[in-house]
Design a protein around this nucleic acid. Structure first.
Lengths: 259, 259
DNA sequence: CGGTACGTTGAGTCATATCAAACCATGTGG
DNA sequence: CCACATGGTTTGATATGACTCAACGTACCG
């Protein structure tokens, strides 16, 4: 599983570099991190709410969700992470969690000790800033989700989510915004959007009827299912999607202060 | 206004120290920050969505909200900040904003240049970690809001918000959890909770009818209006509130790695 | 700005149908 | 005795309809 660790770290480094300028010795320090690569079945809870964790989870493949749970067991997924994302990088500075992590699909996850990440951030302040910036992106997405769930109704809400995932998948080189594969059930999407599975279904039908999306499948219940977006701009308009919050095209030199 | 700067920085330092262990030279570095103290009228927009900022806003007094805006002008407030909070500390690492800031009440705000904050974080890596941890708290609150808005209906939602504000005000020494003053209109609360002002009103009546809260006022429309919580535990239970996400009582030594 | 009323609607609930993939018996032939 | 078909059952996801209810919109008063 050494190979899995290396490729996950490379994806993570690429993600950091998209928004932070890092020096060669800083790359090496990041790629030199050690971790344990684990294969997880779909639906497996990786972290239970309330647990204290001593390592962060880097996604190697598949999709991982962060969630909060109500007393009656109902869940709200508060973040979704794709390969190259460090799910709980923030747990380095706040290890006692109120949230949990769940494998939304089959996936591989690399566990990296907080100790190593904290040392990295302390010895290389620029890397520390890059980590901070990375968790800031998560927070920015979170704020956008609050706005979507709070102020849009189901149609635009689902559309916005699809726009976000289209772009994020494209940037992770896992698809194109007009054609991508989301291995999520409608129930899981409901848990993200604050809707019931039935309503996600109806809303999906609605988007299809408006010609905003299409799904290609060999038969009604066949999986995997591919989402196609015939007219990206129309979907964006319907969703009131504006990608600024994904903090792309805004590469910052963390070392500006020392120059 | 020098005095305003100093007292705001003190409150900020106290807030950081609640969750991070800092050395004496680090305190001094923080208290030595320079900033401009500004007095703002209620409802004034401090930062417009889309703007690029070169300084962070530290609240000296009053309440400041972070918001996202829809095309039709409707707003969703995604965070609320009390005195001692640095509203947009995260903008140090992500200065191009998708969000805006608004003075929810009359307030004083200290503007501190990113440049100085970034230098501080680079030269004192422990302070960098403390900043990171501070923004992580904001993100943690955000995640909880997603869960509340997504999965609770109006009653518990409002109750949860009141629990959160009660505790946060108490910790900032601006009130007690069973008796505090929230200078917010029902419309502003609606913008936080994803509800219409009318519904906030109805829901407030509901909580009152259940004896979960009471408001004391000298006359019907008199402000300020004080919120009283006759039985904290009952309110907590109704709201399904559990304060872990506020990351209190979890003071971490950022310097653990170097020890 | 807070409080109240009334008609409207978006989303939830419950029930049921459909279909594909996974599962698990048995089989049969090499 | 194993390799691999065959067929029935179970499971999990997607659909869709009928009914209910929480929240919205609008209006008006204090």
């Amino acid at each position: 599983m050494k190979e899995g660790v290396r490729s996950a770290l490379l994806a993570f480094l690429r993600r950091l570099q998209r928004r932070s300028v890092l020096a060669a010795d800083e790359w090496l320090a990041i790629l030199g991190l050690e971790g344990e690569c684990v294969r997880e079945p779909p639906r497996r809870d990786l972290v239970t709410p309330g647990q204290t964790v001593r390592h962060s989870a880097l996604v190697g493949s598949g999709l991982v969700g962060r969630f909060d749970q109500m007393r009656d067991g109902r869940r709200q997924i508060t973040a979704i992470h794709l390969p190259g994302d460090m799910c709980d990088l923030h747990s380095v500075v706040a290890p006692t969690t109120g949230w949990g992590l769940v494998a939304l699909t089959a996936c591989t996850v690399v566990h990296i000790p907080h100790e190593a990440l904290r040392r990295l951030a302390t010895e290389h302040p620029n890397v520390g800033l890059a980590f901070w910036r990375d968790t800031t992106l998560d927070a920015s997405i979170l704020a956008k989700w609050v706005a979507n769930i709070g102020r849009k109704d189901a149609g635009p809400r689902l559309a916005h989510f699809l726009c976000e995932m289209g772009l994020r998948l494209e940037r992770a080189e896992l698809g194109r915004r007009e054609r991508f594969q989301l291995q999520l059930t409608q129930e899981q999407m409901g848990d993200m959007l604050g809707l019931t599975p039935v309503h996600v279904n109806r809303t999906t039908q609605l988007l299809k009827a408006h010609g905003l999306i299409a799904t290609t499948r060999t038969s009604p219940a066949a999986r995997p299912q591919v989402t196609e977006v015939p007219d990206w701009d129309r979907l964006v308009d319907f969703a009131e999607f504006s990608p600024a919050y994904l903090l792309d095209g805004d590469v910052e030199s963390p070392g500006a202060a020392s120059g």
